[in-house]
Nucleic acid binder design. Structure first.
Lengths: 357, 357
DNA sequence: GTTAGCACTCATTCATAGGGAGTGCTAAGT
DNA sequence: ACTTAGCACTCCCTATGAATGAGTGCTAAC
């Protein structure tokens, strides 16, 4: 039981005392019921529900143990118990039986997803699907291209000293940006510069290009080189991780339906975090390392706006290489058994769909 | 008084009865006070505030008149009065004295806005500025290009039958899209097609190109023509009003601070409408026709999610041609005198900034 | 036309009481 | 050594009602 080391919250530890088969089973029933009903569950209810032929009094004793272990807590003296974060953790790690998505739904997911061809659209529909299947917020990180290979660059003169720079990657992504040059260049000068880059660097990685160009400039610091370098810098900026590290959210407003999040202030922080993206990206990045579905429960994420939420993620792969991660955000009290399957399946489908062409 | 015709809500009309100078002045004071304090204002307060040397009793009589005219209402029997939509309307149309933005703030706005060069960035900062200056939600419609003039097109082969199409407009906008062709084309075929388009249609409008291409196809229905046409269709789709008709929102979450919108359901509808965009775009489009600042109060917009909000908009011009519209959304109870200036000034600054290069 | 006075209406606040759910503890039963 | 029944107790929740205060409409006098 790999968790035993971690759960030394109260006096008792798990190995220490009464955390036997029975207690586990009761915790399981409790969490399941709480997730279903949303209300603290008391000993009487638990006695009835568990089908274990124990009296409420006995249950109470066990609950007391669980509470001491920090797995459950009661909102106030005379309420039932609710799972704590550790309780959820244990439940998910060792008690939960994941409910495989029924095949009708898988078909539906696939159908919806494979409608779209272009990557941008795919990411968006995946996000929407996650949200509509879970009734929570869906998020999908845009696929990362490990090595951005240069294919072609174009410089088009605009008015004055402004030059439209278009960079095309081997993968067929187009990035463009207007740069302002030091002096005005003629169309033929620009064309020449583009040709130079296109001929010398086709297929190279962007960093590689940058390196070469810098050393080239040391030898030969003419205007042409300077504009090429500038262009490349811009291109790098456009493509750089900072930009390509992005995610798409759908169904944020679904979250407004959950009353555990009903406090405006909490909600606001949550929504702001969707817009800032920064911290959330960090979290997503982290879960991209994981093998399969990963779950952050409540404060586990260490990111305050998510305090009362859980984040369920799964990385998705293109050609057996992790390309990104997707997931859903919802209240800690969510139907994990179902959500996990949905996230899992969607990740696989998205990977396949992105690979397809 | 151009409004008199419209205001036949209760029994009395404005021309009909007691809507004299004094009543107007009182309405003005009432609305101002209500906007400041947010609570129904009673006769005693009004008597004190107005500086008009009238007893509360007299005020009550006048209030009674105003109520009959549908300009004010009381939430319940023993509360003060609050302005109705018509009340706000009258206030804004003929009572309000717009407070010009103090020059320090104008400078600040200009400074923030002119930092950015590229149109996309400009639109975004304008939106953020609107939101941060008003503490409400700011929105900016992206500039419309009336005539999209063709400059250049490129076809780049991807894997299989997919072709990356890049279309560049005279204005330096880049639109790209992956199209799937009926059969696989060789790079030289694609180049040929691009050259054909580039040579024959440089500077033409997109619709014009489309026309010509169609008639051309009637004479000469070869593969090449078909792919060119397909490409053009895609390009049109990318550029078409539907796409270019878009807006950017900032500071949505500011709205969560207003308790008149605190009801989750209302909030949710409002946020959803930001995501759907469709209806809001319609409204914005409408106000693009207007000459200057335009205001929709509460249900006036005829769009339910905005029922308890006001929308203050102003079109912005590039080179004396209306290019788009921007504005803010907030609770009906907002400081119109200030907001109007902010919207007005921002529109002018954005227009100038977009023109600059 | 204006004002004072008065009865009246509501929202809001507060204290109070009763009911219900559920607990912890203790002592008895197995 | 568990398990259970019983009981006192705690705490939330929902009336209920009274007191308060703000503000109104109406009437009659100025």
């Amino acid at each position: 039981m790999r968790l035993s080391g971690r759960l030394v919250t109260g006096r008792k530890t798990i190995s220490d005392s009464g955390f036997n088969e029975r207690a586990q089973q009761l915790l399981k029933v409790l969490v399941e019921r709480y997730i279903r009903e949303g209300e603290p569950v008391g000993s009487r209810t638990l006695a009835r529900d568990s089908g274990m032929d124990l009296s409420p009094a006995t249950i109470r004793n066990i609950m007391s143990d669980l509470e001491e272990m920090g797995l459950v807590a009661s909102p106030h003296t005379s309420a039932g118990r609710v799972p704590t974060v550790s309780g959820y953790r244990l439940f998910i790690d060792s008690l939960l039986t994941v409910k495989p998505l029924d095949s009708r739904e898988v078909r539906e997911l696939r159908k919806q997803l494979f409608k779209d061809d272009d990557p941008k659209g795919l990411v968006e529909s995946a996000s929407k699907l996650l949200s509509s299947f879970t009734l929570m917020a869906g998020l999908v990180m845009v696929p990362k291209r490990k090595h951005v290979a240069f294919r072609q660059i174009e410089f088009l003169p605009l008015t004055g000293k402004r030059v439209l720079t278009i960079l095309i990657t081997r993968e067929g992504e187009v990035h463009n940006r207007v740069i302002t040059t030091r002096r005005q260049y003629s169309p033929s000068e620009l064309e020449q510069a583009a040709n130079l880059l296109n001929e010398n660097y086709a297929g190279a990685g962007l960093e590689e290009m940058h390196q070469k160009l810098v050393s080239e400039m040391d030898r030969n610091r003419d205007d042409m080189n300077r504009i090429m370098r500038r262009a490349l810098e811009m291109a790098e900026q456009v493509i750089s991780p900072k930009y390509d590290n992005d995610f798409v959210v759908a169904g944020q407003t679904n979250l407004m339906n959950f009353d555990e999040l009903s406090e405006m202030n909490r909600m606001r922080k949550l929504f702001d975090s969707f817009n800032e993206k920064h911290e959330l990206l960090h979290l997503l990045d982290e879960s991209m390392q994981a093998k399969g579905v990963q779950i952050f429960i409540g404060e586990e994420s260490g990111y305050q706006p998510l305090d009362h939420c859980s984040l369920v993620t799964a990385p998705y792969e293109i050609d057996n290489r992790v390309a990104g991660v997707l997931g859903v955000i919802g209240p800690t009290r969510m139907a994990y058994d179902r959500v996990i399957s949905i996230v899992d399946v969607t990740a696989k489908l998205l990977g396949a769909a992105l690979k397809k062409p």
